[in-house]
Design a protein around this nucleic acid. Structure first.
Lengths: 179, 179
DNA sequence: TGTACACGTGAACGTTGTTCACCTCGGACG
DNA sequence: CGTCCGAGGTGAACAACGTTCACGTGTACA
């Protein structure tokens, strides 16, 4: 049925990498699909809906998912944080795209609650787990957004080191706040 | 000379609070000034330049500045973090506006270096100070952006508590990383 | 055979940022 | 006094954008 829908969103992501978020135009995307712009509105009611679908598509791990991460809570936090950053950096303007999404997909909230629950089953109070996850995610979003917007000149390995240093600072803070 | 420039930027900020960043249009701003849109280009070469000027204007503390903060490094970090968040929350779409600025004004980098230097004069190595400041600012940006974009329903005092909890987590992490 | 339905067309609409040639007016200067 | 100049504003236009709407077309299924 909605088979064309995923072709559209895939083409949109390809185009994003070539022209950036500001260059991503309904007309241009339509041209890449050999179609007129008005045809896109058969599949998505608005450009914002298309952008949301792109976010959902990027945030959904491939069917051949990596093994579900087991391990202590700090390992888990590290895994999620680097994963989110990786997803954002994988595409041009990825951070800006994901920061602008309008409808937080149900999958995202589910993943959030799963992570909090996992941390809760590993010694942290629910309260502490929520704060830790919220803080790490805010840091990842803020850092990666800035990184992609204004640090194209800084070499990648330096940005990686700074990111991990910040992440370890937060994880150390969680450790220090335990009973 | 450039007296009209600041009138324009002031009117733009007022208008921002009324119509939001998406509603902020050159024509609408011109109308508020009793002028046609093309006249605005006498003062700013592009809309982006105007937006940058708004950011610079908002980030510049009023002439009657509060007393320069003295105290230990953690107190200083708290002060800066809450101050930045306050500035962003003071205007509609403030976080989005300040996240989109193109030219990081020289005043901003100066403030950054001053803060790092201050922390350095208080027991932290320069390396640790840079990481701490970077991490706190990334957190503040990420948290406040999300807060303003999608948490209008959550009461203010709850958002304040969550913010401070995250901030204390990071400051605790800095403490734990000291020799 | 007929009829849904998915998909696409083409032309238009209103709005946006921006440019350009031109106008106006107040003050400095010879 | 006349003249020039620069700051500021006008009005019309341009290309591009997201979006809408009435209308076509082919394919699969009853």
């Amino acid at each position: 049925m909605g088979q064309r829908r995923v072709e559209v969103v895939r083409a949109a992501i390809e185009l994003l990498d070539e022209v950036g978020l500001d260059g991503l135009t309904m007309r241009l995307l339509a041209a890449r699909l050999g179609v007129r712009a008005s045809a896109l509105y058969r599949h998505y009611p608005s450009k914002q809906a298309l952008l949301d679908a792109m976010v959902a598509h990027l945030a959904t791990p491939p069917a051949a998912a990596p093994p579900p991460p087991e391990g202590p809570w700090d390992e888990r936090l590290r895994h999620v944080a680097t994963g989110v950053r990786e997803v954002m950096l994988a595409h041009r303007d990825g951070a800006r795209l994901m920061a602008g999404f309008q409808d937080p997909g149900g999958a995202a909230v589910a993943a959030f609650h799963d992570l909090v629950a996992a941390l809760g089953a590993d010694g942290l109070t629910t309260e502490a787990a929520v704060v830790a996850v919220d803080t790490v995610l805010a840091f990842v979003n803020g850092y990666t957004f800035e990184e992609q917007a204004r640090k194209a000149a800084v070499p990648r390995d330096r940005r990686d080191r700074d990111f991990h240093a910040g992440l370890e600072l937060i994880i150390g803070g969680v450790h220090a706040s335990l009973p």
